[in-house]
Computed example of a mutant assay.
Amino acid sequence: MKVVFMGTPEFAAFCLRALLESRHQVVGVVTQLDRPRGRGKKLAFSPVKELAIKQGLPVLQPSNLADPTFLNILKGWEPQAIAVVAFGRLLPPAVLSLPPYGCINVHASLLPRYRGAAPIQRAIMNGEKETGVTTMYMVEKLDAGDIILQEKVSIPPEMTAGELEQELAARGARLLVRTLDLIESGQAPRIPQNEELATYAPPLRPEEERINWEEEAAKIVDHVRGLSPLPGAYTLRGGERLKVYRARVWEGEKEDLPKGRPGQVTAVFPREGFLVRAGEGEVLILEVQPPGKRIMSAVEYLRGYRLQVGEYLG
């Protein structure tokens, strides 16, 4: 099958690699405009563009998906299907109606749950024990098309959003190839979504990155996991941001700990990390990043930065 691929981040690049290794023919790639990255804010290619160029594929980066010039080139590629993975923009009707087999999307949730831009982060932040990946036929409404295939994935207690993304990307890549195989053979299922069960995963807001120590310990830990490694949860220490990448609910002895108030350091363990009082329970901080420094274990942080029991964070 002749396929046009539309995607941008590394999650999408997993799927593009799988398509390139399949019997399907990728005839062109569409990705977002180059964006500034790093300290120098230099324009950088998306992971999908980098892969496409290495493979010698034609690449389009339209600022307007309804632009006649873009649509004419897309038509000239004569795709039988368009595979869309984390592209970052809704497709206009002119694109959705172009390929005879339709536009097929890979979404990192068990639709109709967690429609939207941040399904992986939101699932972990909400303490979900299970999520998955879905392929579906795209329609004009966000993530609302008929389901083709789904695969469930469990979320272990300490898994971060970054780790879950890697797992879902690998599974989504395989699921996309299976989906296109089924579509080409005329055996693909088409399961309407139940709108009554739909939930949404809106984009992350900058204010959500700050840890609220008034929350219960388990909620704080899920918050940290859901934002790790990007954009990263943070608290304040001495007016500066201290990012927190790994944490765990403290299940050790509590009788000897000072009661403290939310955000207060209640214990320092030189070989493990440090405890912070939550609205309910204690959070053991395991991995942090001080301003201008690399990510490090809490043990390393304690060696280089004096932290006292009774000190407040946030």
Rank of each mutant, 00 (worst) to 15 (best):
V133R: 01
E130I: 03
A144G: 05
A144E: 09
T135W: 00
T134R: 00
T131P: 03
E151R: 07
E158I: 15
M159S: 08
P157K: 04
S154Q: 08
P157W: 15
A161W: 01
D143M: 14
I148W: 00
L142M: 07
T135A: 09
K152Q: 11
L149I: 02
V133G: 01
E163Y: 10
D146P: 05
D146F: 03
P156F: 09
A144N: 02
P156C: 02
A144V: 10
M138Q: 13
I155F: 02
G162S: 04
V133T: 13
E158V: 12
G145A: 12
P156I: 02
A161V: 04
T131F: 03
S154G: 04
S154M: 08
I155N: 04
G132L: 00
E140S: 09
E151Y: 07
I155K: 10
L164W: 08
I155M: 07
M138S: 05
G132W: 00
A161P: 07
E158M: 11
E158S: 07
P156T: 07
P157F: 15
E130F: 05
A161T: 12
M159R: 15
T131K: 00
P157H: 13
A161R: 06
L149W: 05
E130G: 05
V153W: 03
A144K: 04
I148H: 00
Q150K: 09
L142D: 01
T131V: 02
K141A: 14
P157Y: 06
T135N: 11
V139L: 08
P157A: 06
V139I: 00
Q150W: 11
V153T: 08
E163N: 08
E130V: 12
K129N: 13
M136V: 10
D143N: 12
E140L: 12
E130C: 03
E140G: 13
E140H: 08
G145M: 11
I147M: 04
P156W: 14
K141I: 15
L149D: 03
M159Q: 09
L149N: 05
L142G: 06
L164E: 03
T135V: 02
L164V: 00
V153Q: 09
P157T: 01
T131L: 04
P157G: 14
G145Q: 09
Y137W: 10
E151Q: 13
K152L: 10
V139S: 10
K141M: 13
T131C: 02
V139N: 06
K129C: 02
I155A: 12
V153K: 13
G132F: 05
T134Y: 02
Q150S: 15
G162M: 13
L164C: 10
I147G: 01
M159L: 09
D143I: 01
E151N: 13
D143R: 08
G132I: 00
T134I: 03
D146C: 01
P156H: 09
I148L: 12
M136A: 10
Q150A: 12
E130A: 14
D146T: 04
P157I: 14
